[in-house]
Design a protein around this nucleic acid. Sequence first.
RNA 1: GGGCGCGUAGCUCAGCGGUAGAGCACUGCCUUCACACGGCAGGGGCCACAGGUUCAAACCCUGUCGCGCCCACCA
Length: 932
Amino acid sequence: MSLIDKTFSPADFEQRWYAHWETVGAFRPERPDAQPYTIIIPPPNVTGSLHIGHALDNTLQDVLIRWHRLNGRDARWVVGTDHAGIATQMVVERQLADSAQGTTRQQMGRAAFLETVWDWKRSSGDTITRQLRRLGASCDWANERFTMDEGFNTAVTRVFVKLFNEGLLYRDKRLVNWDPKFKTAISDLEVETREVAGTFTHIRYPLADGVKLADGRDHIIVATTRPETMLGDTAVAVNATDARYTSVIGKFVELPITGRRIPIVADDHADPELGSGAVKITPAHDFNDFEVGKRQGLAMINILDADARIIAAEGVPASYVGMDRFDARKQVVADLEALGLVELIETKTIQMPYGDRSGVVVEPWLTDQWYVNAGELAKPALAAVKSGATQFVPKTWEKTYFNWMENIQPWCVSRQLWWGHRIPAWYGPKITDHEGLKTDISSGDNHFFVAETEAEAIAQAVAYYGAKVGKVEVAASAFDVLRLTLDEARETGTSSTVHIYRDEDVLDTWFSSALWPFATLGWPENTADLARHYPGDVLVTGFDIIFFWVARMMMQGIHFMDDVPPFKTVYCHGLVRDAKGQKMSKSKGNTVDPLLLIDKYGADALRFTLTAMESQGRDIKLDEKRVEGYRNFATKLWNAARFCQSNGISASKSAQPPAANHPVNRWIIGEVAKTARGLEAAIAAFRFDSYADISYGFAWNRFCDWYLELTKPMLAEGADPDIAAETRAVSGWALDQILVMLHPVMPFLTEELWHKLGQRGHDLIVAEWVPADLPDDAAASADIEWLIGIVSEVRSARTELNVPPGAKLGYSVEGADTATAERLTANAAAIERLARIVPATTPATGGRLQLVHADATYALPLEGIIDLDAERARLAKAQATAVKERDSLAGRLASPGFTEKAKPEAVEKAREDHAARSAEAERLGAALARLG
RNA sequence: GGGCGCGUAGCUCAGCGGUAGAGCACUGCCUUCACACGGCAGGGGCCACAGGUUCAAACCCUGUCGCGCCCACCA
């Protein structure tokens, strides 16, 4: 216990307390018999640094974790970081490029590059976890995980192999979204559609063999936003019902520039209502056309390489080869114009697919990739939410989830990157009869072995080849998983030496993230942690990753954890925007750095702000003024504690309230109880804003503004020593409860004050929550509410009539019953102090200030001091208000519909209000009459 | 083209069947022995608009207008 400093300076103690908590293991106290409460953190990218969205997400989680820890639960916040495939590889590649040597990963080779990434991770990967500590996040750091640590790798491999063996994961050749910048496939979700100004080029395709359309024209018009794709066209589709074209179905067009003849086919994809009704078909570079191509058995001509440059495909003029797609686009249009085949070029807004990380236009590209049969896994994940086993809060997100899950597409999980979980598949030459062995990954003419370990893959290979060719010997040198290239394998021809190599690709980062809720707890081992902490109680995350992450965790969790979904509740919060409501982005320069806010106002103030602004179903517009306001609140609390300390108030002995006789003390105990119950309800309903409002209102507007003020005379010199002692005890207890109640949101400040106020047996972080069943004394409550009312009335009237604030006035009372008279006597000291009025020796007669409160009228003699006209006006206004409300209530009560149909409580309340308003109006009328 | 959300005091938002609330901002007074990052008192709202349901609507229903977001292969 030490003296509380005059100034509140959060930087002085925040980091000290955090280090203390972590050192003593306070984030995860031993509570083997307690009911577990588990939250798994959305693992931040290891490349990341704390942005305001993290601050929100983690503040909310910490509020929940700390609250449940205070409530006796075995609270565990599972923490770790995500390897973030593309993002991390990008960071390291950029560093390599910027380094003195200026090297690339290709130059380094895979092994050396990966070693560099790991080095980077070891040296810089803890930035964000250090920042989470600044925020106060009480995570279980002792068991921190990484999505590429050894255990995770085991889990990922197990999942891959198991899904493969179950037929839920397969290799397929189809169109993928190809990112030419990163040179990898990406999933549908990683593609974002942007509206851009583009052109829509209408091209004439000349009909071959002198064929003419019904209207006599010798060409078909097709339109495209990507003219260069015409180099890969293999058909023109028309609708079989379209009279304009029926005569040419089965005929051909001369594909310009390429000199190829391509068929005119009938397909429902062509909509007679749109454009010319005819569509160019490029099966290798358009998702719709791919489907048409499969239906019609068309050739698929790939015209692009991995960099999206034109290749020497069939019919592509040599001048195009090696040309960038956008240059090729211009060239195609120029060439067509030269041929007189451009019908029209429209300028219009078009939808273009971009890679969400690379920011370049993605290309549909035909490749072999690994896919997860998401449609199958989605079924139980959908059912789990439908049945309520997992609930979304706010509920509205369930619809979004359903809609996506019901229309889910195969999930492309392979990525042509190096940083990530390498796919546990090995390829060897596919055996074809009489041709010996032939190896070719790009043609798909190979056989693959999916296994958890290399040894197992070899065993499979031995079995496979052994069955076909008899005796197989595996030489260690022959089994080269890293160095053997495709071409070397091809050269092996019919040799009896079989080379097997491992898939070069890695898995989508989200493939491993999807296992986070159980792989972090030791799966696939059957650990005690897993049994105790799966499923998690609540997942707190932004709605923007419902598809990326939540849905996939649901799918994998249910599939691998015996049909138990990974969370009971999914709480989705909104985005943090700037004060104007704009999305924060680095390019706009409107980002708010949470660490700067912490430096300036303290972590508690930032946390309180984010908590207070988190109302369900809405984005947060963050204004620094709010943070400042809640810093002021922190200061207020600091000063209140300082005041208490200087008045001999200190740590309470017990979480149970001290015995109290005085109404003020009995009242505040009841108020603490009400507040605690309100906060419990707020947590149960995930109403973070409500938690902040209730705790703020109680601490400031009840405890500081009234309780501390009302008890000042009770602590003053000359006051009853018994009452003073009781008041000190109750004050200390109430202040402790405030610290407990605010701790989840403002952990640093409250812990600091907790210890400053006295010797404690334990830290606040592991204290007990406000006890249930606190006495709630209705009589004491009525007494104090009455007192607050009378003081407020007097102060209001004084201000309105410009009575000098310091002037102490005598009052006389009329109409007071015994109870009121007793209250006036019992609270005389408080009334004198706060309203500056004392009982008059003689009743007021002349000019006076009159006020009506409850059942009595009070008169303050102010002859010559106040303006009587002003007083008349004040009373008249009050009376008018009372009359208006009285009449309105009377009107309602007079309506038969109301008394017959309304709920009895509503009728009863209207009657009571009406009576009270009538009496008030009457008394105000009498007061006016007295003034003359 | 589907789906979702929002429009309440100057600003940011609660309230979601019984005739309007908070914080900030604003105005006046107060250098009162915890706090001026404070105290006390106050002004300010046809709850977007139009219909409907109801004894009663900011709150429920329908439509309109504005704003935002998500999903979707109109070539």
